[in-house]
């Protein structure tokens, strides 16, 4: 299987030669070939291309917001309150006279950041927990898996909400809450892979040569699970962005004047009946972004890792 070879990333010795790139290319030739193959496969899949285009567009917008955005996202201008779309303000203005298009563009930075950081935290912790649990097995495995079961016994939004409320409303606390909820998904999957890897011959060889458990988990088990973690991470990025926006919507996420999409909708809701543009535009961007991640994630799963099925 592909996964086994990727493990070589961890096992490689540090190259001593001067030409690092050549060495790198030689050592990882197989992975690079596989990557190229995958990219070509994805390129032939229309939904992967569409998803990728959306994501790339959002990322570009987020990065270029300071250059592209016509106004300052937090500077208030009381004379321009609640202007309808048109003229200088394509998406209209909010109740403090700020340009909604500008805020939506900056909002992309926040939502993408939330998505990525949550997946990194949850993926990292989940993978370590799952790998250790699966590799050590027995009592420890039982205990960890029961804890994961407990976390999975809550609907994700309910648990994230309770946690965020307890930690206090702030963007960082919302990120922690969502990450916590996502950990079991990674832990369970990686555990399954770890159980399989454990039986492989090279592990027995490593153990025979005196390697400790943690060393083996770090150098063999985790690298083997990397590709699955990446696929799962992409798949749940959309969900993560949705939950985080929902938390902001009920007041438990980003705080003003942060231009977070969910928080903007939450305030815009008060003005819905007369100033429809306020709540509408941020929502369109959430929807489009999440669609991008969802269809790209699905395609990636189909192409890269047929083992993961929901």
């Amino acid at each position: 299987m592909a996964g086994e070879r990727i493990g070589a990333w961890g096992r490689g010795k540090r190259p001593l030669r001067i030409n690092v790139f050549d060495e790198f290319r030689r050592q990882y030739a197989w992975q690079i070939r596989e990557l190229g193959f995958m990219v070509r496969l994805l390129g032939r899949n229309p939904s992967a291309v569409a998803g990728f285009a959306i994501i790339a567009g959002m990322v570009a917008m987020a990065l270029a917001a300071p250059v592209l955005a016509p106004f300052n996202p937090i500077q208030i201008s009381l004379g321009d309150r609640l202007l309808p779309p048109g003229g200088a303000h394509w998406f209209g203005t909010d109740e403090l006279g700020r340009d909604i298009l500008t805020r939506v563009m900056y909002g992309a930075r926040i939502s993408l950041w939330i998505g990525v950081i949550v997946v990194v935290i949850a993926g990292g912790l989940g993978a370590v927990i799952g790998a250790v649990s699966g590799y050590l097995g027995r009592r420890f495995d039982d205990l960890i898996m029961r804890v994961m079961d407990v976390i999975l016994s809550f609907p994700p939004l309910v648990l994230a909400m309770a946690l965020a409320a307890a930690l206090g409303p702030s963007l960082n606390n919302a990120i922690l809450a969502v990450a916590f909820v996502m950990i079991p998904k990674f832990a369970r999957m990686v555990r399954g892979e770890a159980l399989a890897v454990k039986e492989k011959q090279f592990i027995a060889a490593a153990r025979a040569s005196g390697a400790g458990s943690l060393w083996i988990v770090w150098h063999h088990v985790l690298p083997n699970c990397l590709s699955s973690v990446i696929v799962l991470g992409t798949l749940i990025l959309g969900e993560t962005i949705l939950i985080a926006a929902s938390l902001s919507f009920i007041g438990l996420g980003a705080q003003p004047p942060t231009p977070e999409w969910g928080a903007m909708i939450s305030v815009g809701r008060k003005f819905l009946m007369d100033q429809w543009w306020y709540a509408t535009f941020p929502g369109v961007f959430i929807l489009v972004t999440v669609i991008g991640f969802n269809i790209f994630g699905d395609a990636l799963r189909d192409v890269l890792d047929p083992r993961i099925r929901r």
């Binding site: 937090i74 500077q75 208030i76 109740e95 004047p257 305030v267």
Partner: peptide
């Protein structure tokens, strides 16, 4: 309050 807070900030 939300608006007033933003105004005070500025």
């Amino acid at each position: 309050w939300e608006q007033i807070a933003a105004i005070l900030q500025s």
